[in-house]
Simulated assay, not measured.
Amino acid sequence: MMDTANKAPIQLTATAVEIVKQLLQGNTEAPYLRVGVKGGGCSGVAYMLGFDAIMEDDDLFDVAGVPVIMKKAHGMYLMGMEIDYQQGSDATGFVFRQPGS
């Protein structure tokens, strides 16, 4: 089977996919999962996750059935990143992980 879509720079774990699909359900205003970075400088890069509409300078990826958008310039910062959803006693939410680190 030919894969015509660009390979997404990020991966979503099964749990993250499940949660995102629930959150996206019925969301017509912002039907895409936006993954991005902000900052840089001495504090490093902060990762962002949210729901948004697609814009002209976005790349669109299908990650396990989730429509993911990101600014073209952000791809290099997100390359290889895995996004998980954790439900723990101390913290619940999405976590960015660089595999192997």
Rank of each mutant, 00 (worst) to 15 (best):
V66T: 01
F61P: 08
G44Y: 00
P9V: 00
I54A: 14
T13M: 10
V45E: 01
F96E: 04
Y85A: 01
D58I: 00
A14F: 07
G80C: 05
Y77G: 01
L23C: 07
T15V: 13
E29Q: 15
M48F: 11
G26M: 00
G50D: 04
D62C: 12
T4C: 10
D57G: 07
E18V: 01
A46G: 10
T4D: 07
Q11C: 12
D52E: 13
Y85W: 05
T13W: 05
F94T: 00
A14R: 13
M79F: 09
E29T: 06
D57M: 03
V45K: 09
A5K: 15
L60R: 14
N27H: 02
V66K: 04
G88S: 11
E56Y: 11
Y47F: 13
D59T: 07
V17R: 10
L24N: 03
I83N: 06
G39T: 05
P67R: 00
Q86C: 08
Y77L: 03
G88P: 03
Q25S: 10
I10C: 11
R97T: 07
A73S: 12
P67M: 04
K38H: 12
A64Q: 12
K71A: 14
M1T: 09
E56K: 14
Q25G: 06
A64H: 06
G75K: 10
G39V: 01
K21S: 04
Q86P: 02
L33E: 09
Y85M: 00
I54Y: 11
A30E: 14
P67T: 01
T92E: 12
C42A: 14
C42H: 13
A53E: 15
A53C: 08
I10S: 09
M76V: 14
A73W: 09
